[in-house]
Write a protein that binds this DNA or RNA. Sequence first.
RNA 1: GCCCAUGUAGCUCAGUCGGCAGAGCACUUCCUUGGUAAGGAAGAGGUCGUCGGUUCGAUUCCGACCGUGGGCUCCA
Length: 632
Amino acid sequence: MIKIILNGNTQTCEPGKKVGEILADNNALAARVNGQIVDLAYELKQDSEVNPIYFDSQEGRSIFWHSTSHLMAHAVRLLFPDVKLAIGPAIDEGFYYDFDLTHSLTEKDLEKIEAKMRELVKKNLPIVHKFIAKPELEKSYHQAGEKYKLEILSEVPDEKISTYEQDGFFDLCLGPHLSNTGIIKAFKLLSVAGAYWKGDEHNPMLQRIYGVSFPSQEQLDEYITKLEDAKRRDHRKLGPQLGLFLFSEDLGPGLMLWTPKGALMRRIIEDYWIDTHFKAGYEITYTPHIARGHLWETSGHFSYYKENMFTMTIEKEEYALKPMNCPGHILIYKSAVRSYRELPIRYAELGTVYRNERSGVMHGALRVRGFTQDDAHIFCTPDQIEDEIYSTLQLAIKIMSDFGFKDFHIDLSLRDPNHKEQYVGTDEQWDMGEQALIKALDRSGLKYTRREGEATFYAPKIDIKLLDSLGREWQCPTIQFDFNLPSRFNLYYMGADGRHHTPFMIHRAILGALERFLGILIEHYAGAFPVWLNPVQATVLTITEAETDYAEQVIAQLKTQNIRVNKDFRNEKISYKIGEAERDKIPYILIIGKREKEQNKVALRKRRQGDLGAANLETVIEQIKQDIFERR
RNA sequence: GCCCAUGUAGCUCAGUCGGCAGAGCACUUCCUUGGUAAGGAAGAGGUCGUCGGUUCGAUUCCGACCGUGGGCUCCA
């Protein structure tokens, strides 16, 4: 007999008993036995601690989705016998499988594949874990012409290969997997896309099908509702609809036109940004959009970034549009001999940069070729770096929360300790830099994830990802050291010892790029911006022409209070005008009819709250100002 | 850049198996002066993404290109 601890309770059983029988729980997808994740068919051989794994954990979902991916591959194999299978993992939200198939898959095919998958689910096929001798497996893959599987196999050192099989369809896989196809109650194939074998563009292009699955139809419906909600928030749709920005084929891809309302919002953001940065001890600069090639040679951009730069020839000399603002700031730093007494120097700039992004990667306002970074570069002494990182973090968090983002995921990217030769800079610099980042994070009390080997070649960094109202992540603030440019440009400062010292340089952006940040704000607020950000804060609607004079007085009063106000005096029914104002997501709608005019009031209607009845204008102005003050 | 899909009025979308291009909303004018999310009528609006080919005739079929979308890749 062996001892089993299940959910903290101890019991005994015969050796060889399956985990699934011990759990006796229909909702358990797999189990963790002594810390190792195993199938329900796993046989217990020794004293073990057993914990069930459900769909509510990341591990559980991953197993569920991986099994669905196999199910899909099984269906595709049945429908298209000549298919060659590549890989089919679970991903953050769902799964995919890559196929090499002569037939081009379409949406219609997805329906067919789903139907075939449903058949396989109904059959309740057992999913069986088997170990097959490598030569045997190689032989059968060779016969089937499964070249991708053979390639994977050649990279596996094991002699006995772990595979999973369901009704004759098998796939190499470490597992674990669900015990039966019948568990996969609800799934949807979402899209078909091209993907290179192993993600390398020199390799053949495969066809990838993305999908998602759940233990119940309700969960799938909920997921689909969420997708639809995300679609309703799509900044590419709302942006032009709300008059914020647009793209024009005549202008060129990845180049954004800020239309008046969007430009006004940008102005509000910029004013806030500049004011906040002045208060935080930054100095504002402007640097030109083009610079001679020589500068980009010194900075190194021409050797490692030139293919992403727009270049031109002026008087026989090569110039380039700036892809980054740092060289300009460095030239300002270098324009005088700097003393340790004047450090830290913090140069901030809303700098518009241009990058020649590959044609397939542009995406609405989020990925463009011309964009304005809220960039800054801090030059400081070694003993200032921790404080500088700390205050930059505080500033980033303050700004993000002012824009309504309160939840973050923070990544700390460090160098790969086993491949130190890949990085520029000295060990001393790296140790100081990494320690400063860690200390500043700890001092801030922020939770973060360490990512070894994720640093850029020139320095470690902190990336902050915002979570929006749908729980989606957006990478915005980034704080990175630079151990490369100060030495390339021979930067120094005069130390207390009368000698030259190389300053530490910190790059940082908080909003990222204004274009992208506007897109994120639209998605986060679904276009219904807080009052302080909304380009139109209030609108005045009249019921009949008789109230026009009084309504104009109301508007004049709002304007003296610096409230951004619109009007709609058109000869239309009030409900028509309200509908339009609501669709424009204007936060305050002031309605004026005969009664309001007589009583010297306004009828207030607030976004999402509806009709609030008559109120004194002064009260309404106070409310608006309070909303602005509290950034609601 | 690559694979696949896609492009008809300002917007959302019909349609033409090759023969003068359609609706709703928006816009203009007129009627309606109305009380909390779309009152009525009339009018105007399109080189059917661009260029080329096939054809008596192309928005429709074919090709190239451009844009957009889903991905891959890249993201200093």
